[in-house]
Amino acid sequence: MTTMQELLIRLGLRPPADETVLQPLRTALTHTSAGLKINHEELEFLGDAVLRLACAEFLEEHNPTLSVGDRSGIRAQLVSDRWLAELAAELELDGLIVQGSATAADPTAKATVRAECCEALVGAVYLAWGGADGGLHAVRQWLDPHWQRSSLELASDPHRHNWKSALQELTQAQKAGLPVYATAEENQSHGDPRRFRSEVSINDQQHGTGWGPSRRLAEQEAARVALAQLRPPSGS
């Protein structure tokens, strides 16, 4: 069994009789950093549009009572780079992605490469399974089970992975001041989970400290800690 056939099994798609139609999938998994003439960029552009349309259809079918605003918020998480990178890791795309040696050796680039190639893979599946004549169905066949699982996780915690937004909503509801973040770079080691340190304060009172490999992630962690302090206990 070839690695491409194994990937199709992970995607939940039936291998086509003519394997030449799978060329878009190979292109999607060829990152620009490899320096090859054919790469993932155009398929990533297509995949972005297909991904949003497919997810809009999914939410319309499974969450028809939600407002357009709520659906937009959920879709933003279900098509985010973070979600795509996690999906790529689950699919074990790392072993199939062709990329430059410098990029492969950079731990901070891993999530970005995964997300970009996974989005390109969406565009590739759309094309390989017929484009306007069946491609969207194939994308839905692949992604719907993952969206169903993620939707359940989001239902239990609507602000999953977006702690800063949740903290700001909470402070606004409590008529407290807006959160203020003081973030500093502690060292310059790329990929170090404690490279940045962030403290979040509300009304000049510190409520949380977080660490992360980037400013954004350090601030998200600080917000998560602050939320745990400020939210009333469950059932109270």
Score class of each variant (00 low, 15 high):
Cys55Met: 04
Cys55Ala: 11
Ala56His: 09
Ala56Cys: 15
Ala56Glu: 14
Ala56Asn: 07
Ala56Ile: 05
Glu57Val: 11
Glu57Pro: 02
Glu57Trp: 11
Glu57Thr: 11
Phe58Asn: 01
Phe58Cys: 07
Phe58Pro: 00
Phe58Glu: 06
Phe58Lys: 00
Phe58Gln: 05
Phe58Gly: 01
Leu59Asn: 00
Leu59Met: 14
Glu60Asn: 04
Glu60Phe: 04
Glu60Trp: 08
Glu60Thr: 08
Glu60Gln: 05
Glu60Asp: 14
Glu60Val: 03
Glu61Leu: 12
Glu61Met: 14
Glu61Asn: 13
Glu61His: 11
Glu61Thr: 05
His62Asp: 10
His62Met: 06
His62Gln: 05
Asn63Tyr: 15
Asn63Met: 10
Asn63Ile: 14
Pro64Gln: 01
Pro64Cys: 08
Pro64Ile: 01
Pro64Asn: 03
Pro64Glu: 03
Thr65Met: 10
Leu66Ala: 14
Leu66Tyr: 13
Leu66Met: 15
Leu66Phe: 15
Leu66Gln: 09
Leu66Pro: 08
Leu66Trp: 15
Leu66Ser: 08
Ser67Gly: 10
Ser67Ala: 10
Ser67Arg: 03
Ser67Trp: 06
Ser67Phe: 07
Ser67Glu: 12
Ser67Val: 10
Val68Asn: 12
Val68Ile: 08
Val68Lys: 11
Val68Tyr: 08
Gly69Ala: 14
Gly69Phe: 10
Gly69Ser: 14
Asp70Ser: 07
Asp70Trp: 12
Asp70Gly: 07
Asp70Ile: 07
Asp70Ala: 11
Asp70Phe: 03
Arg71Ser: 09
Arg71Met: 13
Arg71Gly: 06
Ser72Pro: 14
Ser72Thr: 09
Ser72Gly: 11
Gly73Phe: 01
Gly73Ser: 00
Gly73Val: 02
Gly73Met: 03
Gly73Glu: 01
Gly73Ile: 00
Ile74Thr: 06
Ile74His: 00
Ile74Lys: 00
Arg75Pro: 03
Arg75Leu: 07
Arg75Met: 09
Arg75Val: 04
Arg75Lys: 10
Arg75His: 11
Ala76His: 11
Ala76Trp: 04
Ala76Thr: 11
Gln77Leu: 04
Gln77His: 06
Leu78Gly: 00
Leu78Asn: 02
Leu78Thr: 01
Val79Glu: 04
Val79Trp: 00
Ser80Asn: 09
Ser80Ala: 06
Ser80Lys: 04
Ser80Glu: 00
Ser80Phe: 02
Ser80Trp: 00
Ser80Thr: 03
Asp81Glu: 06
Asp81Ile: 04
Asp81Leu: 10
Arg82Gln: 09
Arg82Thr: 07
Arg82Asp: 15
Trp83Glu: 13
Trp83Tyr: 13
Trp83Ser: 12
Trp83Ala: 09
Trp83Gly: 08
Trp83Pro: 05
Trp83Lys: 12
Trp83Met: 15
Leu84Lys: 05
Leu84Phe: 14
Leu84Tyr: 03
Leu84Val: 02
Ala85Thr: 01
Ala85Cys: 10
Ala85Lys: 07
Ala85Trp: 01
Glu86Ile: 05
Glu86Ala: 03
Glu86Arg: 15
Glu86Asp: 12
